[in-house]
Design a protein around this nucleic acid. Structure first.
Length: 377
RNA sequence: AGAGAGGUGUCCGAGUGGUUUAAGGAGCAUGCUUGGAAAGCAUGUGUGCGGGCAACCGUACCGGGGGUUCGAAUCCCUUCCUCUCUACCA
């Protein structure tokens, strides 16, 4: 293919020279030869293009390879708990789940959300709204102290960005899509913040890159409605602070540990009992090589709620993003990592349930400082 | 939303069909020069794909996509984006 093109290029040059020196007849002859070559090239490229497209389509649908430390398994039951922290609070027998508490104290309103939007879009009111704001500020300040640069990205993204972080084609149909403008509502800040570095070649001395941002997140959750989705457990719109790192391949797992520690610190300051799971291969997302999930124990529901997911994507996203750096004059793919730090709704659920008292809900100090109140009553 | 002007390498910027193999400048890197630096001089300096141990060779890329032509940064179509003016507006 390239050889044929090379020949046509050379002939075109020759024709140019002949035309200049006035040898029109010879030039005309070459034109015919070249036309034949072009035909050949077209046939070759007609064969090549569909093959390349097919290869591309297959590759786009191939998930990442799990890291060697990922346990085998297909279902969440096969995830492995690697750490547990904190004590389950002893609640009175009449302890309420959060969906009752939010009504009792009138702080989150699903019916109003239903009216103005639909199911899964709650309205936060009064101390409920202020608690949201407090948590967001708390999480962002903690990220800043940990060396992350705060980013406020757009919450609509284009198709290229969707492919960059691998939500597309895998999660097509799970994102809200504006057909008029061909834009998607982000399911996580990971998408815009990581895509800042699409088609970028970084300098080695700028690594690692650490960014964090708060955004609302939107998920259609098509097909996942059913049991265990009451109250704040699963929403179409929720708030989240996301931390994102870009790393040299050799230290990405070290950084993953740092991110894990950061999330642990947040939960400990919030005084919420939690555990960390090493996800089994079957429960990991499409793009991830290794994922740790964080779950807090919701005492009134008597169940674990996922509040954070920290992953190393190795070169999987970087390959699609064309995110690279230079080593010894050669370009090399970087590693991308991200983690929720953290998603609000289930944190709120656990805070409400675990801290309920006859007087009201007593907020831990870390958050009452931000909220400006320590009791919801 | 309407009218006009634009989009060229890391940056600025020239280029309206054939030595553009993208001028020129800046930046950066290396070397020479220097006591050291600056200046000066010299050389080098994009990405993808294919081939090669390598030096290197081939090919594609001048916002994106398509077309005309033996030959396109240059001409045509289409689309996105930026700027100016007008309109509107938190």
């Amino acid at each position: 293919m390239d050889a044929v093109l090379s020949e046509t290029n050379n002939l075109a040059k020759e024709i140019g020279n002949l035309m200049k020196s006035g040898k029109k007849d010879e030039a005309e002859k070459l034109k015919i030869t070249n036309a034949e070559l072009k035909e050949k090239a077209k046939i070759l490229s007609d064969k090549l293009t569909p093959l390349e497209e097919e290869q591309n389509n297959v590759l786009l649908r191939l998930p990442n390879l799990p890291h060697a430390s990922v346990p085998e398994g297909k279902t969440p039951e096969e995830n492995i708990a690697v750490l547990e922290w904190g004590k389950t609070p002893a609640l009175p027998v009449d302890a309420l789940p959060h969906w009752d508490l939010i009504k009792k104290y009138d702080i989150i309103d699903f019916e109003l959300g239903n009216k103005i939007t639909g199911a899964g879009f709650p309205v936060y009111k009064g101390k409920g709204a202020r608690l949201q704001r407090a948590l967001i500020n708390f999480f962002l300040d903690e990220a800043t102290s940990a060396g992350y640069r705060e980013i406020q990205p757009p919450i609509l993204i284009n198709q290229d960005s969707g492919y960059g972080t691998c939500q597309l084609p895998d999660k097509d149909g799970q994102m809200y899509f504006m057909n008029e403008d061909k834009l998607y509502l982000i399911p996580t800040a990971e998408v815009p913040i990581t895509n800042l570095y699409r088609d970028v070649i970084l300098k080695a001395e700028d690594l690692p890159v650490k960014n964090a941002g708060y955004t609302p997140c939107f998920r259609r959750e098509a097909g996942s409605w059913g049991a265990d989705v009451r109250g704040l457990n699963r929403l179409h719109q929720f708030d989240k602070v996301e931390i994102v790192q870009i790393s040299k391949p050799e230290n990405s797992y070290e950084l993953l540990e740092d991110m894990k520690k950061h999330v642990q610190g947040l939960l400990e300051k919030l005084e919420l009992p939690y555990r960390i799971l090493r996800l089994c291969a079957g429960d990991m997302s499409f793009a991830s090589a290794l994922t740790f999930d964080f779950e807090v124990y919701s005492a009134a529901q008597k169940r674990w709620l996922e509040v954070s997911s920290v992953s190393n994507f190795e070169t999987f996203q970087a390959n699609r993003l064309k995110l690279r750096y230079k080593v010894d004059g050669k370009t090399q793919l970087l590693h991308t990592l991200n983690g929720s730090a953290m998603a609000l709704p289930r944190i709120v659920a656990a805070l409400l349930e675990n801290n309920q008292t006859p007087e009201g809900i007593k907020l831990p100090q870390a958050i009452s400082k931000y909220a400006g109140f320590d009791l919801i009553n």
